[in-house]
Nucleic acid binder design. Structure first.
Lengths: 244, 244
DNA sequence: CGGTGCTTTGAGCATACTCAACATCAGTGG
DNA sequence: CCACTGATGTTGAGTATGCTCAAAGCACCG
């Protein structure tokens, strides 16, 4: 783990960053990581604060350290599609011709690492390991985007919600006493905008899943998954909620 | 332009490849391109032939030379989502953990360049310019995927068709006598599977656009765009077909 | 001709949306 | 302490967009 604690470039904040597990530096050898690390600066954003907007010129590449943020696109009349919820370890700052292709907003309070884009690009030209790393990360994002395209284009509302809960429980679920418990930092509006549904539909499907015993709902933001197998079958259309 | 004609590695086929305009090599300096070019081999596929399937172990990276191919994902019950139509100059072969994340099929007869994945990966580690190039290409694919997520999740059927025709006419339209003429190599089924619609809906919207004078239809595969401004307004929901 | 494959059109229906009311909760201030 | 407010979520009734099922049109081809 790289430690820049006390470095005059970055007085204190860096102490909290584990470059071994950071999105961009993970798996990089020490020499490569030590070229990247000094570029970093830390930024904090309060929940609901914008980090950048679609079409803005992109000066930085970011990576989530703590908290969750939302990437989204909008139509002129305000309809919104969330393209991703980003948890710690993800990087962001995709551009085409130097401009952001989506907006980014803090969902919870977040801490991000920020790297000047021009310097990262220069380093990519010098450090093949960094280039490889970014290529892998971007490829993973693309694979997720394509999975989401299948969801948005071809799945029913129930399948969408089941898929969403399944993915979230795989990535962020806490397993205690044999069941998986989930904290969802996003509102129903956000879930709807992520899955291509309205809030009412999201709410109704949650209720149906609860009544079918597949999940249990505490506070609106807490979901307990009782039957993850059933959820997996529902996600792919191998099962329907109405058969009981 | 690199010429390997007569090279003992690649007897004849390479004569037809312009490495300056190839997806992977475009913009690369001569030295870099000349490291990449010898890896290539040419493959031909007849229309409807599979190139690879989702979850197959990925041995190659491909790039389209002539023809059009489709990338798609499927649900267990056969529902299909086309994630992209790839025209010459695009590369394909996205993987996660060494496996393809979607299936690829020839839409028309196609010629592709094929590079052994392991060798390309090795070269990426040695040639920063190549890494940068692949990063740009993958980033562009990701940007397109996110635009498609907005379309699939939030646009109406009319907006989807209008957006599709607009994109196709920008990328593949021929302008003669002030109007744009389009050849669509894909069937209505393919268009439906790309836009998250059924063939019937696709057909109905085409008819409506024709009756509104926005487009003209000759053979099913030929579309003439009469009013590209209207199409652009329809694509973003700034206009409706019913207001006349 | 009578096939087959693709597209278009029609009629009826279902899924998910719209609009509306109500519930719940946290924060605020009288 | 409790009424008031605003934000978020749930539930209900009715509707519309896009789907299903069915038939007909049309080209290409043996």
């Amino acid at each position: 783990m790289l430690q820049f604690v006390g470095s005059n470039h970055h007085p204190t904040a860096l102490a909290q960053i584990d470059f071994d597990t950071s999105a961009i530096c993970q798996g990089l050898d020490f020499d490569t990581a030590s070229r990247v690390a000094p570029l970093v600066s830390i930024r904090n954003y309060a929940a609901k604060q914008a980090i950048f907007y679609e079409l803005d010129p992109a000066k930085y590449v970011y990576e989530v350290v703590t908290g969750v943020l939302t990437l989204y696109k909008q139509l002129p009349d305000g309809r919104r599609q969330i393209t991703g919820f980003l948890y710690p370890g993800h990087y962001l700052g995709l551009t085409v011709h130097g401009h952001h292709v989506h907006s980014a907003e803090a969902l919870t309070n977040v801490t991000v690492c920020r790297y000047p884009r021009c310097k990262i690009e220069k380093l990519v030209g010098e450090l093949p390991a960094l280039a490889m790393r970014l290529l892998t990360l971007t490829g993973n994002e693309l694979a997720m985007a394509q999975e989401q395209m299948l969801l948005l284009g071809r799945k029913t509302a129930t399948e969408k919600i089941a898929s969403f809960l399944l993915t979230m429980s795989e990535q962020n679920g806490k397993r205690d006493d044999g069941k998986t418990s989930l904290y969802l930092p996003m509102s129903r509006v956000d879930i709807g905008d992520y899955l291509g549904l309205t809030i009412e539909t999201v709410s109704r499907i949650f209720t149906r899943l609860r009544k079918a015993g597949v999940i249990a709902l505490g506070q609106p933001n807490v979901v307990a998954v009782n039957d993850i197998g059933r959820l997996a079958r529902l996600a792919d259309g191998d099962d329907t909620l109405f058969c009981n």
